[in-house]
């Protein structure tokens, strides 16, 4: 089996694909990027927590015009997973306002982004209708 790497460091592929967040040990605010301190309470201790893989679409857009190299149309959305908001695309669904709805239940899924010159395969994530 070939080697895999996640598109972003907050996507964990094992044992099953899921997202992780940096949670402030002081106030519980969650972040997906590398942190210097907490934007909410300024504390600087964080723990890694798993984010639920199922959620609800709280906003979306169907992008028809994007920068060169970005395939369109695609659905960009915010998904509330438990109490945590996540940014991601809604995939495996026709990108039309008839098929994508506010409040829609979705679940995390992954897809291959191809291999680099060393044969390392990058894996991306999105959300699909649950």
């Amino acid at each position: 089996m070939s080697q895999q790497i996640a598109h972003v460091s907050y996507l964990k592929l094992d044992p099953k694909p899921h997202l992780v967040a940096n949670e402030c040990t002081s106030c519980g605010a969650r972040f997906f990027d590398r942190r210097n301190a907490c934007a909410s309470c300024f504390a600087s201790d964080f723990r890694t927590v798993d984010v639920p893989t199922e959620g609800e679409v709280t906003s979306f857009t169907i992008v028809a015009l994007a920068a060169p190299g970005v395939p369109v149309p695609f659905v960009a959305a915010t998904v509330k997973c438990g109490g945590t908001s996540v940014r991601g695309n809604i995939i495996n669904v026709e990108p039309t306002p008839d098929k994508v709805k506010l409040g829609m239940k979705v679940q995390l899924t992954t897809f291959s982004m191809g291999a680099d010159d060393d044969g390392l395969e990058a894996v991306g994530f999105g959300f699909e209708p649950a």
Binding site: A6, T61, V63, F74, R87, N89, M113, G126
Partner: peptide, 11 residues
């Protein structure tokens, strides 16, 4: 990120 996120993880 190993690749740009625009278009793959939102816009």
């Amino acid at each position: 990120a190993v690749a740009p996120t625009d278009g793959r993880i939102g816009t």
